[in-house]
Design a protein around this nucleic acid. Sequence first.
DNA 1: CTTCTTGTTGCAAATAGTTCTCAACTGCAT
DNA 2: ATGCAGTTGAGAACTATTTGCAACAAGAAG
Lengths: 140, 140
Amino acid sequence: MEGALRDAGVRITRQRRVLLRVLAEAEDHPDANELHRRAHALDPGLSLATVYRTLSVLEEAGVIDRHAFEGKPARFETSDRPHHDHLIDLETGAVIEFRSEKIERLQAEIAAELGYDIVHHRLELYGRRRKGKAGGNTPR
Amino acid sequence: MEGALRDAGVRITRQRRVLLRVLAEAEDHPDANELHRRAHALDPGLSLATVYRTLSVLEEAGVIDRHAFEGKPARFETSDRPHHDHLIDLETGAVIEFRSEKIERLQAEIAAELGYDIVHHRLELYGRRRKGKAGGNTPR
DNA sequence: CTTCTTGTTGCAAATAGTTCTCAACTGCAT
DNA sequence: ATGCAGTTGAGAACTATTTGCAACAAGAAG
Ligand SMILES: [Mn+2]
Ligand SMILES: [Mn+2]
Ligand SMILES: [Zn+2]
Ligand SMILES: [Zn+2]
């Protein structure tokens, strides 16, 4: 992963290495502040400004994705996994991932009909746990 | 429309009447600043703070929708027309509306499978005009 | 290994968009 | 006409993020 960056002409500094690691180990969708806090453990002195700058660099290099959910500050995640969209639990703030081949396809069709090629999109569902009987988050 | 607001316990002030009118006449998706500029014509002295406050009130009353497109400031539109989503032209910034019953349905299904009820969602396509041969924005 | 060039960093100050504080006002129920 | 809770204008405050600048360090060159 560092190789890919180096090839893209991105210098590998101590702070970038740390952030890459923090991002790689993250299982959630941390925001800049949280990333700064986590990185702080491995490298005190790494500034928040650098976190922001590095996130922009990594985003442009295509190794991370930035999500701006309703209101809240931007959140990040590595883009090594396949594309997916998000469902946000309005009560707990939990972020649940999902992927719908059908929706992806429909989006492309719609854009095409309008004479456009999709560069990227944003699909976010905001909801609350269904109180009713069935359904349910099938535990793995 | 004012009646509905009054019933919701919202006082009808001169500035709110102006903004409601500006919003009703808008055919695009203006942001707070633009709304302020337009309202200024009908009522100089109407402050930007009031524009923001009124927009929040109207949003909560459910008479307008707020859209936060990539990066740019929030944009608004009356919610009297049926629900739709947006395609943003990355080059011109143009906002094109569309509606897909299928996608709406799929979203509900996905949420249901995850054990959720959708409160609202956000679907935005960001793209560029297709250079290729066919397709195309059928002019009306 | 030393040097050199240029990208990178930390800090603080700057932005942009939006919200809040507070005293002066006003819609509107009585 | 009165009274008061809700609303407004002006500006300060805020939040998230960006930027200017001088010190610093990656890594190509020698
Ligand atoms: Mn994700
Ligand atoms: Mn619209
Ligand atoms: Zn998607
Ligand atoms: Zn929709």
